[in-house]
Nucleic acid binder design. Sequence first.
DNA 1: CTAATATGTTAGAGTCTTCTAACAAATGTT
DNA 2: AACATTTGTTAGAAGACTCTAACATATTAG
Lengths: 219, 219
Amino acid sequence: MASQTEENYLKALYSLSVGKMEVNISELSAALNVSNPTVNSMVKNLKSKGLVKYEKYKPISLTEKGRKAAALIVRKHRLTEMFLVEKMGFGWEEVHEIAEQLEHVNSSALFERMDELMDHPLVDPHGSPIPDRQGNISESAYEPLSKFSSGRKVKLAALGHSSTEFLKFLNSRELSLGTEIEIKSIETYDGSMVLSYQNHASETFTKAVCESLLVERVG
Amino acid sequence: MASQTEENYLKALYSLSVGKMEVNISELSAALNVSNPTVNSMVKNLKSKGLVKYEKYKPISLTEKGRKAAALIVRKHRLTEMFLVEKMGFGWEEVHEIAEQLEHVNSSALFERMDELMDHPLVDPHGSPIPDRQGNISESAYEPLSKFSSGRKVKLAALGHSSTEFLKFLNSRELSLGTEIEIKSIETYDGSMVLSYQNHASETFTKAVCESLLVERVG
DNA sequence: CTAATATGTTAGAGTCTTCTAACAAATGTT
DNA sequence: AACATTTGTTAGAAGACTCTAACATATTAG
Ligand SMILES: [Mn+2]
Ligand SMILES: [Mn+2]
Ligand SMILES: [Mn+2]
Ligand SMILES: [Mn+2]
């Protein structure tokens, strides 16, 4: 059984590994808000437990065992977030901090019950996929809105990141997952996009925002 | 903010203080499954934080601050147990271990939402009262079934203790909170009672069991 | 009241997680 | 290539929580 601290290291390593296959000591210390020497010693510890691959001065990667362990924590995190939104009425911007704690609860019964009560959801409230009981995850193939051109109709499917500030910003624009969006025009100077959706005829979003809006084609 | 470990000490101290006003080092170490010296040093630590009163070789008691802190953890524990039973379909014998972990989650929003979703329940699934937001608790005045005499009609209101084994035993006899019970007869030799309730015309319970069945008079 | 027993305390140490200071290796820049 | 910068490692220490062994005090029994 990994400690709560070890679990947080595994999960951070897992998130940082998306796309890339290897992670630096410094990236991990930044993500976890601890010093480099702290990460260095914890990585040695995780190596001794067969959870990470690591050689002095080389980047770190998860072993298959470590990847699975991390995915199962992510599963608990995302099931919790979805449960808080779907069954307890929280907003999508309120759930991450709570899930950060609940993900360490040791009770398969609790998370299996959440899963059942929600009819086995496939994604969390931010559109990120929920790993299955075996730790397998179907990485979603959505593309950033910024990749599309004027006139295109798309549907908001997920977010590139889910900071509270970003989520509150989207709330203020009444933009939520599943919303159908039409690209009215694109400003060539700074890449900002003018969008139309629901009862918003014309809302402008910066390029940075549009890169974090992951969408799928519609129609 | 008290650590999870400190919270468990406070809560144990709180439970052991019911009735009595003071608690021994040894009682506490037995309850928490740690050694006497461990408790000794933790008690000094809690004293330094103003949570307990303690002098060398004397029994321990909670300060008002400590009592309130403990009651608020008990509140989270019992709200969680009730939520797991009422909203997630767990049995009353399954929830204690999960609540033992969830009670340490730092999120007033989570527990307030549970409270709201259940319409501010007054007791947990074992009939124990839930302290209010201020840490006030209304100690219930139920009496053990063993105190009553033959012919008396009562209603099961709470349990003297809630070990998994006891709860499973009550499940096997289809006895749950709220059940109306009539005392058919009492065996003078060993104090065992023959009870009638619901579709059980005649069930015998030992004195020990009847002392843990807390009831209120009916009719 | 003394002796035996039970209970509580101190000392010293170990694990886990973290830090800072100092040093070493790798990388980037002229 | 030589120097400067970034990145990673080692050493040493601290705090939180736990233990065992040894000692001290309090309680109980004769
Ligand atoms: Mn999250
Ligand atoms: Mn976490
Ligand atoms: Mn309980
Ligand atoms: Mn607990």
